[in-house]
Design a protein around this nucleic acid. Structure first.
Lengths: 340, 340
DNA sequence: ATGAAAGCGCTAACAG
DNA sequence: CTGTTAGCGCTTTCAT
């Protein structure tokens, strides 16, 4: 910057004014400065600036999502990026992998880089650092998962109601023997979805012996094995609710292996790429990750602009997309003998 | 940091030494400093540090990919993140959308934040800023697309050879009427893939009238429409090579609409999620995005450590995955009458 | 083994 | 409209 000032024949403060679009610079002077900027290919150092700036902002956001490689998380990331870029803010993204250690390391990394705000998916435990962050004026918004007991904003789907509706859909198609394939219960989202499933089966008066719940599934392969075991059991389910996109994929594999994809109904939580092109098409409860990301960024910026209202827990509607797999009726014979 | 020093009863330099794991601190002193750090929940300001540090490093990387929402790019991103995090480096990711303006804005944003290195996918034009970056000691590695004329490292697939092999696969299954659905030609990768396609058809002595090339397809919908038109023409192709993942998805839609998915062969460039679960399974030329990302980061760090060897253009092998769609033979009747 | 002083690139506050 | 001075939080250098 000193070099630019020297070349343009002005003081550094004038250069600062010009590159930051501050008022009170004569057009001719500004022109000379811009010429010098271009001649030297100068770019302001935002970090040095933030050191001195009154608000201390780094124009940087931290985003912690399940994995930058996961389609659901990628959609959130994209929405966050778009809304942030629009305001001249850059985004650090980190993958969580449902690992509390990773979460802590990621938050530390964000803090050391003085991000202005944090959009987080948590590994599920109580987040004791959140209050500290907020004391320092760093707003935090939870996405996808709403932790039990924090004072932070959150943007989530209504997991319980949506899981309940998906289960009721299966029940209304005549199923009484429905399995739930779910993620680890420590993940609040997973727990909510299980509650929704249980709400529906209980209200329909279906004995829990007929509604096996397999939780703790961490990936597609685990879901694959779990459903295979269920299908080979004495009392195989006639319908399946899979509680998450990777689990849905595993479930599809299991049904295919057993050639049951047209016989056993499947409703999946989360939309899956190409779900409409499969045979049968996969009926899903689709979340709206774009909207989740968009709203999350908006909350961050509202907070940064001084909004001090109580934490807001935003619920983004889900949509139910019937595509075939969820509309398969149970076998007409007695359920007990349905082995193929 | 001053507060920590005060609380621990030491000078700021000692705190600096402790938090940076520098030698020459008495164990007892270090302990007192750590206690103070914890009591105050202190986190170093990496940015302020980089301002004064001799090497000027910010421990930050810029990554520009097609979109953080694209599965291929997401896989690269994940590999980059993992390798960077391991070294205490954080990653800024931006989506390109094949837009030269976005590219420029993203690079500017990276520069203003003083990233240590850049991993870039380009929108295709000559990148005149690369030399400047390198002069400033900021290494640049291109991924996915190798620009025609730069002095930077690159990590790509052998697009031409892989497209050629995919085309030859179709030819060896008896096809003589093969369409190429491709992205915009300004994208070097797309141009390379087209060359590979033409290599194969030319060497097989197939007249170009029988190998229509539709380029300029920007998304799945455009590919869908393009293939629909081809299938409705007088001389529909008996096989299709789709040059990119979104185009493959559009092509599958078009084949489904026309109920031709079991009649017209399809080989896709890039693997597609669930490709193995479709009917028929989609035969693809799969790139290795994890490996591309991993190698790219490695090049960046090698350069940062002083490696000044000539630019290296790394080629990552592709793999060919036959799943059914690429093994469909042409209709046995005369090609001219094959309308269904 | 420790600390004091200087200065990284920038912007705030004020003076002209 | 423009420039000067000070200082953000840290690391360097050099002294102790």
């Amino acid at each position: 910057m000193k070099q630019v000032a020297a070349l343009a024949g002005v003081g550094t403060k004038t250069v600062s004014r010009v590159v930051n679009d501050e008022p009170n610079v004569a057009p001719g002077t500004a022109q000379r400065v811009w010429d010098a900027v271009r001649a030297l290919d100068y770019h302001v150092d935002l970090q040095a600036g933030s050191l001195r700036r009154t608000d201390g902002r780094t124009r940087t956001l931290g985003l912690l999502i399940s994995s930058v490689d996961n389609p659901f998380a990628g959609a959130i990331h994209r929405a966050v990026e778009d809304a942030a870029t629009e305001r001249g803010v850059a985004v650090f993204a980190s993958s969580l992998d449902d690992d509390a250690d990773r979460e802590e390391r990621a938050v530390t990394a964000f803090l050391q880089r003085r991000v202005d705000g944090l959009i987080l998916t948590t590994a599920g435990r109580r987040q004791n650092y959140v209050a500290l962050l907020q004391d320092r004026g760093i707003p935090v918004v939870y996405v996808d998962r709403e932790p039990a007991d924090t004072e932070a904003d959150s943007v989530t789907s209504d997991n319980r109601a949506a899981a309940r509706a998906g289960t009721e859909w299966l029940i209304s198609h005549g199923h009484r023997r429905i399995a739930l394939l779910a993620d680890r219960r420590e993940i609040p989202t997973a727990a909510e979805r299980e509650r929704g499933f249980l709400d529906a089966t209980r209200d329909a008066g279906i004995p829990s012996a007929q509604t096996p719940v397999v939780a703790g599934l961490r990936d597609a392969e685990a879901a694959h094995q779990a459903l295979r075991a269920l299908l080979e059991s004495d009392q195989p389910p006639t319908a399946v609710l899979s509680a998450q996109n990777l689990i849905t994929i595993g479930a599809i594999h299991a049904l295919r292996d057993a050639a049951l994809e047209h016989s056993v109904a499947l409703v999946g939580f989360d939309d899956v790429p190409l779900a409409d092109l499969l045979d049968p098409g996969i009926t899903v409860i689709a979340q709206d990750p774009q909207e989740i990301g968009r709203i999350a960024v908006e909350r961050i910026f509202d907070r940064l602009e001084g909004d001090a209202s109580p934490p807001h827990h935003h619920i983004v509607p889900t949509s139910f997309i019937p595509r075939g797999s969820g509309e398969i009726p149970p076998p007409s014979r007695l359920p007990d003998t349905s082995n193929a």
